[in-house]
Design a protein around this nucleic acid. Structure first.
Length: 811
RNA sequence: GCCCGGAUGGUGGAAUGGUAGACACGCAGGACUUAAAAUCCUGUGACCAUUGCGGUUGUGCGGGUUCAAGUCCCGCUCCGGGUACCA
């Protein structure tokens, strides 16, 4: 068991109550541990770990140091120690500071400005989810703003290609693999330099469609583009400034929202389209994001929907350069006239220029892209480029309750890391968990802890940011291998024995972030020779979330469950007496619709709770909790106990009824394959079916009873142990071997064929399993019922699928 | 908006392209009981027919492929997850 116990909720609770988060964290873990033990879940408690334990986060800090001291060798596609980094001659000549800057630019972890949401009222950095759609802070209603703060970032995009390729061989749900691929977002295209009128600087854009350069009629840069100040002309300055201010209030999500109106302003500057030397305006608009590509685009409204919308709104020229592959003549006309956007393939038109000497008219997309790209490369104004959507990972938080960075900022500007031998760098005790005056982390209040002095008297400050909760959960599976090792993160021999993780069961909400971050760290550790596998999780399975009933009024207002009463199957508000709607929603404290396992356990026992969780439905589906369902499995367990524990039902001797034997072995077989496929709901229903059978039959042999209890025991261990003793055994059932299936009992002599006419089942007929097709046909054709359904018609075809179905086709 | 899931009786769900609704809850009727609870038995998608055999229809909506579609393909609707500082 591992407790991932750092993070925002514990910290917020601390701010509200003044209780130190380590105390609440400990209490919560104690409760969960007790509940888990009561349920009889077989965790290895000798391997219990907690990410907030200094003996654990010591190693989290150690991994951070390793990331900092690693660079990515593009040639080898591999992370390597910075000590192996070759410094170019000219950098060496530039002196110590230059060398340091060069190395820092290669490290997987680096320190730089990054934008965050800032609430000046609470003096706190807000999570995106804390910022409401109107741009206000959900806690205080103050309008938040974007602010640059010094942050730690990790260069995960360097591993994009490795992370992408690795996905192919994983035994994971395809949907999750797709989500990771899309998140990494590899796209190949080209970078193109545009000259700007009156400026020396060039404006570089990334485009997946360099072939459409002839259709580029304007350019757009992001409001945060670093050339913005230079590009903006004095006349346009005022409107550009106003625009930037309004854009800074929107989240990236709002900015890319296609349903919203496009916005933007002209910068006053023009650029030159390199393929035809035409003068095109440079605009600023927030639908271009600074974090993707170069933060600037060439706009081809005729062949890109976002550019098209923008051009229509601001009356910018739309030049069609592709004769579309469509049959609809009207649509073709509209597209060529620039009245409709076309993003698919077609033959180029209007795509040649005498001055530049380029001509791709008549070609198709694929050849067009390669032609233009090689032309750009030959002229030195562009190059083929692979771009990734995945961005550097912002790896620091202005919070108290997280791992401190083992980093010292010296007053002379140098940054050094704490020596590994000095780890863990422990969190200092604080009285207040609120952030400092300037937006610094709460740790800036820890004055004693904060200041450091080295042997030569140089003074410095410790890093006050802390790591995000991802840090601890990124590698916890590795610490399970050797949780008590004080000298090493784990022993390499043990790592080789255990890795990779055979089966990882986790929620689909971790589809991208946690699972991608974790894979990234693992690959770095692999490159450094610390782990022996390239991928951490061989097989992944997503369990579904358990929802619960909740209530809302006619108008949709949510009502906490303790204010609801049930009468005659309808639900009413206790105070207003209004009738309420029962809905299904995520369990939450506000709706008071959480289920406390203690209540269920005290009423129905731990086995009922276990069984119900498994019986509710497939493991991977979200489903609502319903107390009545617990009653159902409780009934099953009670019937099983009553039947098996009653000596009158257990026959002496070993001669068992054929039908019971068949049922028993069907049940074992079903449960066995269901467990392997994590389909516990159908395994339980198989047991119910068997129990119904033996109750009907009345008596079973001791062997049958024991076998049944054995297959029940992984699902309901407590009850099974007791039945095992009642049946006369003295040892525990937990170590009994799984019963084997005897196929002999499962053989069938006959099969009941469903006979259908044009796919509709009409009657059934029992026939020997090994009867050949022609014989089956002749028996069925001579059957009275067949004649009735055929009437005076002749069958045009008869399909016989052995031991499955017969279908008679009538025209 | 974008990416990924999902939708089957009153409810949770079952169904290698081959008998839709297994199993369970709920409900109805019955047995036991002075009564209730518990337990046991029977029935239970909808509609029609009912004296019985039965018939029609039905897996979110609209198309398609197939001898046969809950399942495969195309186009939608609604719900859920993620969207980089919840983890």
């Amino acid at each position: 068991m591992g407790w991932d116990a750092f993070g925002l909720p514990a910290e917020q609770y601390a701010i509200q109550t003044g209780t130190h988060p380590s105390i609440t964290t400990k209490n919560n873990c104690d409760t969960f541990r007790r509940q888990i033990k009561e349920l009889g879940l077989s965790y290895d408690w000798d391997r219990e770990i907690n990410t907030t334990d200094p003996n654990y986060y010591k190693w989290t800090q150690s991994i951070f140091i390793k990331l900092y001291n690693t660079w990515f060798d593009d040639q080898l596609q591999k992370g390597r120690p910075v000590s192996e980094l070759k410094i170019p001659e000219d950098i060496l000549k530039s002196g110590k500071a230059g060398v340091r800057k060069y190395i820092d630019s290669k490290r997987l972890a680096y320190y730089d400005d990054a934008q965050v949401w800032w609430c000046s009222n609470c003096r706190i950095v807000c999570a995106n989810e804390e910022v409401l759609t109107d741009g206000s802070h959900e806690k205080c209603g103050n309008i938040v703003e974007k602010k640059n703060l010094k942050q730690w970032l990790l260069r995960i995009p360097l591993y994009a290609e490795r992370l992408l390729k690795g996905i192919d061989d994983l035994d994971w749900p395809e949907g999750i693999k797709d989500m990771q691929r899309n998140w990494i977002g590899r796209s190949s295209g080209a970078e193109v330099d545009f000259n700007l009128y009156g400026l020396e600087e060039k404006l570089t854009v990334f485009t997946t469609r360099p072939d459409t350069l002839f259709g580029a009629t304007y350019m757009v840069i992001a409001p945060e583009h670093n050339l913005l100040d230079k590009i903006t002309t004095p006349e346009a300055s005022r409107s550009v400034m106003d625009y930037i201010k309004s854009a800074s209030l929107k989240s990236d999500l709002d900015r890319t929202d296609l349903s919203k109106e496009k916005t933007g302003v002209f910068t006053g500057r023009y650029a030159i389209n390199p393929v035809n030397l035409k003068k095109i305006p440079v605009w600023i608009a927030d639908y271009v994001l600074t974090g993707y590509g170069t933060g600037a685009i060439m706009a081809v409204p005729a062949h890109d929907t976002r550019d098209f919308e923008f051009a229509e709104k601001f009356n910018l020229p739309i030049v069609c350069i592709q004769d579309p592959d469509v049959t609809d003549a009207d649509q073709k006309k509209r597209i060529i006239a620039g009245k409709e956007c076309w993003t698919e393939d077609g033959k180029y038109i209007n795509s040649s220029d005498k001055q530049t000497g380029i001509d791709i008219n008549g070609l198709n997309k694929e050849t067009g892209i390669s032609e233009i790209t090689s032309w750009l490369e030959s002229k030195g104004i562009g190059k083929a480029k692979i771009n990734y959507k995945i961005r550097d990972w912002l790896f620091s938080r202005q919070r108290y309750w997280g791992e401190p960075f083992p980093v010292i900022h010296w007053d002379d500007g140098e940054i050094t890391l704490v020596d590994e031998k000095e780890l863990p760098l422990q969190l200092p005790e604080l009285e207040k968990y609120l952030p400092g005056e300037t937006g610094e982390s709460p740790l800036s209040n820890a004055t004693d802890w904060l200041s450091v002095k080295d042997s030569s008297g140089r003074t410095g400050r410790r890093e006050t940011n802390t790591m995000p909760q991802w840090a601890g959960s990124c590698w916890y599976y590795l610490r399970f291998i050797d949780p008590k090792n004080d000298n090493q993160i784990f022993s390499p021999e043990k790592e080789k024995y255990w890795m990779p993780v055979d089966l990882y069961i986790g929620g689909a909400e971790h589809a991208v972030l946690h699972l991608l971050y974790s894979r990234f760290w693992h690959k770095v550790l692999f490159d450094l020779g610390i782990v022996s596998t390239d991928e951490p999780y061989k097989r992944l399975f997503n369990q579904g979330m358990i929802l619960a009933f909740a209530y809302e009024t006619e108008t949709g207002a949510k009502v906490a469950s303790d204010l609801v009463e049930e009468r005659d199957g309808k639900f009413y508000h206790k105070e207003t007496r209004d009738e309420l709607r029962q809905i299904v929603a995520k369990m939450s404290k506000t709706l008071k619709n959480v289920v406390n396992p203690d209540d269920v356990t005290s009423k129905y026992g731990a086995d009922s709770l276990r069984l119900y969780e498994m019986f509710m439905g497939p493991l991977d589906v979200t489903k609502p909790w319903d107390d009545k369902g617990v009653k159902g499995v409780f009934g099953f367990l009670s019937r099983a106990f009553r039947f098996i524990s009653n000596p009158e039902n257990i026959l002496p001797g070993s001669e068992e009824d054929r039908e019971i034997l068949k049922g028993l072995h069907q049940t074992i077989k079903k449960i066995q394959s269901d467990i392997e496929n994590l389909r516990f709901n159908t395994a339980i229903s198989a047991m119910m079916i068997f129990l119904n059978l033996i109750i009907k039959k009345g008596k079973i042999t001791l062997t049958t009873a024991e076998t049944f209890v054995k297959v029940l025991s992984p699902f309901a261990p407590h009850l099974s142990e007791e039945l095992w003793l009642i049946l006369g055994n003295c040892s525990t059932i937990a170590y009994e071997p799984w019963p084997s299936v005897n196929e002999e009992y499962l053989k069938e002599d006959v099969f009941e064929y469903p006979v259908s006419f044009n796919g509709k089942m009409r009657f059934k007929i029992e026939l020997p399993v090994n009867m050949d097709k022609n014989e089956i046909i002749s028996i069925i054709l001579s059957d009275e019922r067949t004649k009735r359904w055929l009437g005076d018609k002749e069958p045009s075809n008869i399909i016989v699928v052995p031991n499955r179905i017969v279908n008679i086709v009538i025209k």
